[in-house]
Design a protein around this nucleic acid. Structure first.
Length: 272
DNA sequence: ATACCGACCTGTCAGC
DNA sequence: TGCTGACAGGTCGGTA
């Protein structure tokens, strides 16, 4: 489901509501897929500890976990990746347990943090010490580093944008939307994109991500944030999901092709 | 080393 | 009313 703007929205919502709360107990379901660390390890890292901060890194949500007693600062982190359909919900304990609930954290404030994920592409893990993420943060990278990412790559520019080892957090929607704004066809070889076009892409990508965060992300089918609220950036999509509809700039029908197994949308006239 | 492609899952929707 | 196939915001590992 979620790309950078959605994960950012969820992380901010969670941070606002449960930073400082204490995890009293952890229940993990019996489906093995969501657990990237052993269940016993996840439980032992979390139970009896404080959630001291919640932040996004790429598409990961990083819960910083610290012991209650100060002194030995055994820092650890709980890492949640939402995959395609993962959701984190804050619920009162009496709320009905949704189908496909794979984890429940009981908090000292009497609330529960629940992880629900029908397709089970999401992943839960714990790390000791700092979480090390790959790739550059698209909202922070400067033009020079950004340009270097694509140097000599024969892969389509869109595949490069989706490669989390280069940039972390860009997914299918925002790859298509930023390429449209930059006037670049998604199937162009990365190495064949000119410096001037990369400069446009660098700017377009940040612009699209920032606008999307402002609007709470894109709700395409069932995405909701930590408060159960939908985002509104889907109303601003110019190409994603608009195949056959007129380009908003030139009226040419938007085309849909498949690149690296992902649906890709572009205007054949505005994007070169 | 790099880059496609299927696999991993469930749910929904269109078409017959 | 089914049934089937295509498709969905992501990532990984095998293969070429």
């Amino acid at each position: 489901m979620p790309e950078l703007p959605e994960v950012e929205t969820i992380a901010r919502g969670l941070a606002r509501r449960i930073t400082g709360d204490v995890i009293e107990s952890v229940w993990l379901g019996d489906k093995p897929e969501p657990l990237k660390s052993p269940a016993a390890e996840i439980a032992s890292v979390l139970v009896g500890k404080r959630i001291s901060s919640i932040e996004r890194a790429g598409k990961h949500i990083v819960f910083e976990i610290t012991p209650l007693e100060r002194g030995h600062s055994a820092k650890a982190a709980w890492i949640v990746h939402l995959g395609m359909t993962g959701r984190l919900q804050i619920c009162p304990p009496e709320a009905e347990i949704a189908k496909h609930t794979h984890a429940i954290l009981k908090l000292r404030s009497e609330r529960e943090l629940r992880f629900v994920d029908p397709r089970r592409f999401g992943r839960l893990s714990v790390v000791h010490g700092e979480f090390r993420s790959t790739g550059a943060e698209p909202l922070e990278i400067d033009l020079e580093l950004f340009t270097k990412l694509f140097h000599g790559r024969k892969t389509p520019i869109k595949s490069a944008l989706l490669n989390q080892k280069l940039l972390r957090g860009v997914g299918n929607i925002y790859a298509d939307e930023s390429l449209y704004r930059a006037g670049i066809r998604p199937q162009r070889r990365a190495a064949a994109v000119t410096r001037a076009q990369l400069a446009k892409l660098h700017r377009a990508l940040k612009e699209v991500l920032r606008e999307a965060i402002t609007l709470g992300g894109s709700s395409v089918s069932d995405y909701v944030d930590a408060d159960g609220e939908e985002g509104f950036f889907q109303l601003k999509h110019r190409v994603y999901g608009r195949q056959g509809k007129p380009c908003l700039r030139c009226k040419t029908p938007i085309r849909r092709i498949v690149i690296a197994g992902r649906s890709s949308h572009y205007c054949p006239k505005c994007q070169k």
